[in-house]
């Protein structure tokens, strides 16, 4: 196909879909855009009752975080073949 033809076919294809109302984001009612500066839920909340608990879970003494054995205990255990040996080889783990 001719160079310009490729572009024009693609663009008319896009426009046709848009006119049919299936593919055009602009066809959807624009929702209210967020106000600038609004934080994600629970984040950067430095006011109200939460701020007095900002150090919740932080011991009042300086504890060395390396004191306990560092083993990830989250959902990473669910990812098959997700753990590598020091040598870089993939360890086959039973699922």
């Amino acid at each position: 196909m001719e160079k310009n033809q490729i572009l024009s076919v693609a663009i008319s294809g896009l426009l046709a879909l848009g006119l049919a109302g299936t593919a055009n984001a602009a066809d959807n009612k624009p929702e209210m855009e967020k106000c600038f500066g609004i934080a994600k839920a629970g984040m950067n909340d430095c006011s109200g009752s939460k701020s007095s608990h900002s150090c919740a879970g932080q011991a009042s003494k300086n504890n060395d975080p390396m004191d306990f054995v560092a083993v990830p205990k989250g959902t990473c255990n669910k990812i098959a073949n997700g753990s590598l040996t020091d040598g870089g080889g993939v360890v086959k783990k039973a699922m």
Binding site: K40, M43, S54, A56, A59, S60, F68, P72, G74, C76
Partner: peptide, 29 residues
């Protein structure tokens, strides 16, 4: 501890998936 706690919470807000992947204790460390 407030300084660390606030920054920890900022990181937890930016990296919720990492936190779930490694668990709360590991993430905190």
């Amino acid at each position: 501890n407030n300084y660390r706690g606030n920054l920890h919470d900022a990181l937890a807000g930016a990296y919720p998936v990492i936190k779930l992947l490694v668990g709360d204790d590991f993430f905190r460390m």
